[in-house]
């Protein structure tokens, strides 16, 4: 992947496929580290499946839906001497607190750090494709914050679909503006 924002899109698609009603995408950035945490309330995975998802060669037909996405993000983090962690609680075992958490830590100053890229495009793509699922996005940097919560959007829109062109366009402009003030451009 050329941008970490594409990994974020890819991993979040897994959350949606797992039946998540809310997926939060949190980016914590400092001068030298970037941490991406994706948390969902989807169906989760059993311990056995979880053991396999980090290894692309372990994947069998039944777990094929997990595919290469997780190994690619893990590799991107480890290439920067960062780290990667995935934990999950399956719906069968934890009927009231199921879901998956993926956390990747990157060293920004490492030669092999992949730039974050266009996070706005990732979020508008997610909203466009999954208008009935909620996403909470927060990017913390240097004491400032960029944020978008589709639950708030939904409340304002009162039944208008979130994938309407006008709404997607608004989200794009809103996030671009948030990013401008985040990086103080």
């Amino acid at each position: 992947m050329k941008e970490l924002s594409l990994n974020i899109l890819d991993i979040t698609e897994n959350s949606v496929k797992a039946g998540a009603t809310l997926t939060s995408i949190i980016i914590d950035e400092t001068a030298d580290q970037l941490t991406i945490t994706i948390t969902d309330d989807g169906c989760g995975m059993s311990e056995e499946i979880l053991k396999g998802v980090e290894d692309p060669f372990y994947t069998t037909r039944t777990t094929r839906k997990v595919g290469l996405g997780i190994p690619l993000l893990k590799m991107a983090a480890e290439m920067t001497s960062g780290n990667f962690k995935i934990s999950s609680k399956s719906k069968e075992q934890y009927p009231n607190s199921h879901g998956t958490v993926v956390k990747a830590v990157f060293n920004k100053n490492h030669l092999d750090f992949t730039p974050l890229g266009d996070v706005t495009a990732t979020l508008t793509t997610l909203i466009q494709g999954h208008p009935d699922t909620d996403f909470l996005f927060v990017h913390n940097f240097d004491g400032r914050q960029a944020e978008l919560d589709t639950r708030q959007m939904r409340e304002m829109l009162d039944g208008i679909p979130l994938n309407s062109y006008e709404v997607i366009k608004w989200a794009e402009e809103y996030l671009n503006e948030q990013y401008q003030s985040l990086y103080d451009i």
Partner: peptide
């Protein structure tokens, strides 16, 4: 500055 309140106008229009 863009704000969530603008969504209300979009809602009315749509």
């Amino acid at each position: 500055m863009k704000s969530l309140a603008e969504l209300q106008a979009i809602k009315e229009k749509m």
